[in-house]
Write a protein that binds this DNA or RNA. Structure first.
Length: 817
DNA sequence: GTTTCGGTTACGGAC
DNA sequence: TAACCGAAAC
């Protein structure tokens, strides 16, 4: 065990321990103060299996991080002997920071705190050869995965249209989630994917191995395989990881479950934290059963419930609790709060989705202006949580129009963007020219005249000679077998890649191909992220790669409106490299990083899906689109029936419990679905809200104000408003019988419109009118040709625009509505 | 080899 | 509706 005592990789860890020891000599652990009894119990039950059932907003992370601090502080183990896994990088980061703060500022020193995937990557790099890989394997993302599968489907002579690669990817992911290797699948599920599923799965795994690559599912699957087939390796880690902690346990799939169970088998020092009511990832393989079964898996487990909520008002909590109570098979928790009073959950119906967006926009502005009885007035205190990402558009459109700053969380991610993936492929190729997938991606990007024919020749040469595509290309160039312009371009490409690679090797000879192998000492540097002491030569190299490859030039010459943004993103990518010591470290990091919460400081409204909102909280929350079919989602109900409906209900529960002070649920009577207008029914979940904790608002645009104000939802005595009857629930029937409701549904073919809002379609514009366009901004009408206007925009210049896309800008520069 | 066209599909999404 | 993809047109 001397290898880590005198080596420096653990320096952070040791200093953390030392600091903890010093703190201990100073008296009892200070961090234990401020915990409530349940939290304290969860922190102090250090040995043996513990299940922490932590309701929304009950201080789960506090308990978890304090527990880690306590493990270290009490001398039970060193930081590097704790395995702590989360699902997202964000959660891992937050945990690291908070543990560090508890123990006095150190954030390094916990090499095994990370996501399931990042921990598995580290382990798998160490034991790659046991599953036929080299330790420098690459990690494919979904995009690469699909392209690979497409090739295999075509190779199997199947019609890619009838049997799309996406679907096969889903099937294979499902198998991997359940820890099924191709051999295990063979017997069962032979009917999958036109009876070819298991065969294609096997072919895919072979192909991955040949490429020295893995997909995300493999990270877990391979480790489970290794643990199951190499008792010595498993035993080594069982000894090493003396304490195991798992966050969001309700979201674990079978593979993760097996992985954890194998590791915990010996000492059983495993603490799982979760909330069965917040299990919302069943559709991607999560098994609520894992958490429901914990006490059976680990007999004698201590079960601790965190039920005191510190986040929401009593109305919000009551609404959420009542709703979730409809689900069956819960472990059961009773959330309570000391907070009294506050606003009731608000409910409002709208004519259509656009009006809903308009109303929410106004409401957000009213709150930001302090015109609503909530303490929070920042835009960043407010969030809109939708069921499906396509719902975001109505809000984006509206907010662009009125100039309300917003931020979409979890949209298309930075590292998934086309230009970033292209650039990354160049970097991958420079680091390892034998990366065939990277080669394929950029060989003709920018266009080098190397089309299908030329690429087929490279492929053939590679297959015949057993070479990588790059080496095959090099050989073809050397032999002068590809002539003309293409030949010259290919030569240039090959020379470039070879040169870049040589420079990388010269810069860091040790890491270029074969990482040091020291299986005994489980020593790991913490990620590739290294602060200063960095000459930034790799930054200059990367800039040159982008220049010399012609990639930057390609976008500079591109006249499409996206091009400038893409160049901007490339700059950002180069900047991100500054955090890393070398290119290899960066590539490793990026493969597992999916969140991009850059520019968090700005004051903007957040828009995100309910899934993305888990773990977050906001003073003000809007929950639009509560309509049957949309939420609960028809697809979820079709796929898994009652089970799906219950998961949707948990999603609703997650949504409501994100709110601290004010929660507003809304629905629309009409909505466009796939371009078709449909009339909608309010969500059945609205029936399940407790009337006493809900206030029904009157929608705008309904003359007479009958809806809500005059007793919609039953008025006093039959639903909302009957404050004394906690158990009384709102009913959709109340909605239908209300005078306002009939006006919320359209009855004919024409696209519905809010009755009292004037649309601009038929507003006649004149030459010289000031107008507003949501993309181009303000401008002046120069010419009119039928319904097309020629507008000189202040910022964007002259454009031809259909009249329907602009609104009249009044003198104040404001927008109508 | 590249661009355009037309038919199809989409709307749960972390790593 | 719009975005995407493969096939036909250029």
């Amino acid at each position: 065990m001397s290898s880590y005592d005198d080596d420096d990789p653990f320096e952070g860890a040791l200093s953390l321990t030392q600091r903890a020891m010093q703190a201990m000599q100073g008296g009892p652990a200070p961090y234990l103060e401020g915990l409530n009894p349940a939290q304290r119990a969860a922190v102090e039950a250090l040995d043996g299996p513990v299940l922490m059932l932590a309701g929304a907003g009950t201080g789960k992370t506090k308990a978890l991080t304090t527990r880690i601090a306590h493990l270290i502080h009490s001398g039970r183990c060193r930081p590097n002997e704790i395995l702590a896994v989360t699902f997202t990088n964000k959660a891992a980061r937050e945990m690291k920071e908070r543990v560090g703060r508890l123990l006095g500022g150190a954030i390094e020193g916990m090499p095994w705190l990370g996501t399931f995937h990042s921990v598995c990557v580290k382990l798998l790099r160490r034991h790659a050869e046991l599953v036929g890989l080299k330790s420098n394997f690459t990690i494919l993302d979904t995009d690469d995965q699909i392209r690979l599968l497409k090739q295999l489907i075509l190779a199997a002579n199947m019609d890619e249209k009838r049997w799309p690669a996406r679907q096969l990817a889903g099937i294979i992911d499902g198998w991997k989630n359940r820890a099924l290797t191709p051999e295990r699948v063979k017997g069962a599920e032979t009917a999958a994917f036109n009876n070819r599923g298991s065969e294609l799965y096997a072919a895919y795994q072979d192909r991955l191995r040949a490429l020295n690559a893995v997909d995300f599912g493999d990270l877990l699957l391979h480790m489970v395989t290794i643990f199951q087939t190499h008792a010595d390796v498993l035993a080594q880690y069982q000894r090493w990881f003396r304490y195991i902690l798992v966050d969001e346990y309700q979201d674990t799939n079978v593979a993760q479950y097996l992985w954890l169970r194998l590791l915990a088998q010996g000492h059983r020092n495993i603490c799982c934290v979760g909330d069965d009511d917040q299990s919302i990832y069943g559709w991607r393989g999560a098994e609520v059963g894992n958490i429901l079964r914990f006490e059976k898996d680990f007999p004698g487990a201590v079960v601790i419930r965190l039920e005191q909520n510190y986040r929401s008002t009593e109305h919000i909590l009551a609404a959420a609790s009542r709703l979730i109570a409809t689900n069956e098979g819960r472990l059961g928790k009773t959330l309570w709060t000391e907070a009294k009073g506050g606003e009731k959950v608000r409910l409002i119906g709208h004519w259509d989705g656009e009006e809903e967006a308009r109303w929410i926009g106004e409401e957000i502005e009213a709150i930001a202006a302090g015109r609503r009885p909530v303490g929070a007035v920042q835009l960043s205190d407010q969030a809109i949580l939708v069921r499906a990402s396509h719902q975001m558009r109505a809000f984006e459109d509206r907010f662009l129009t009125i100039g309300l700053p917003y931020r979409v969380i979890g949209g298309p991610r930075f590292y998934e963007r086309l230009e970033i993936r292209d650039a990354m492929a160049y970097f991958r190729l420079a680091v390892s020219p034998e990366d065939d997938l990277a080669f394929e991606r950029v060989i003709n990007t920018p266009k080098r005249g190397l089309g299908e024919k030329a690429q087929a020749r490279i492929q053939m040469m590679a297959r015949e000679a057993g070479l990588s595509l790059f080496d095959a290309a090099r050989r073809l160039v050397a032999a002068g077998e590809i002539g003309g312009k293409a030949g010259g371009q290919l030569r240039l490409f090959v020379e470039n890649v070879a040169r870049w690679n040589a420079e990388i090797r010269a810069a860091s000879p040790a890491t270029a191909t074969s990482p040091a192998e020291d299986d005994d000492a489980l020593i790991e540097l913490d990620e590739g992220a290294v602060p200063p002491a960095n000459d930034h030569s790799h930054i200059r190299l990367v800039e040159r790669i982008l220049e010399e490859s012609g990639y930057v030039e390609m976008w500079q010459n591109d006249k499409t409106p996206e091009a400038p943004g893409r160049l901007e993103n490339l700059k950002e990518l180069v900047k991100a490299l500054e955090q890393f010591e070398n290119l290899q470290g960066f590539l490793e990091h990026v493969a597992l990083i999916m969140d991009n919460d850059s520019a968090e400081g700005e004051d903007k409204v957040s828009i995100m899906t309910l899934h993305a909102a888990k773990g977050l909280e906001f003073p003000v929350v809007f929950l639009p689109g509560w309509e049957d079919g949309l939420f609960p989602s028809q697809r979820a109900m079709d796929e898994t029936g009652q089970k799906g409906l219950e998961e949707e209900r948990r999603l609703a529960y997650v949504g409501i419990t994100r709110a601290e002070e004010l929660c507003t649920i809304s629905f629309a009577g009409n909505r466009r679905v796939y371009g078709q207008w449909q009339s909608q029914l309010p969500s059945r979940f609205i029936d399940e809200l407790p009337a006493a904790h809900v206030e029904v608002l009157t929608p705008p645009g309904l003359y007479g104000g009958g809806f809500g104000a005059a007793g919609a939802f039953g008025g006093a005595g039959s639903g909302f408003g009957g404050g004394s009857r906690m158990e009384e629930r709102a009913s959709r029937a109340d909605v239908y019988n209300s005078p306002g409701w009939k006006r919320l549904q359209s009855h004919g073919a024409p696209p519905p419109r809010p009755t009292t809002v004037t649309t601009v379609d038929h507003v006649a514009f004149g030459i010289g009118d000031r107008v507003f366009h949501k993309k181009f901004g303000y401008g002046e009408v120069m010419e009119i040709e039928g319904d097309t206007l020629v507008i000189e925009f202040d910022k964007a210049g002259a454009k031809h625009v259909k009249a329907g896309f602009v609104t009249a800008a009044d003198a104040a520069g404001d927008v109508p509505f």
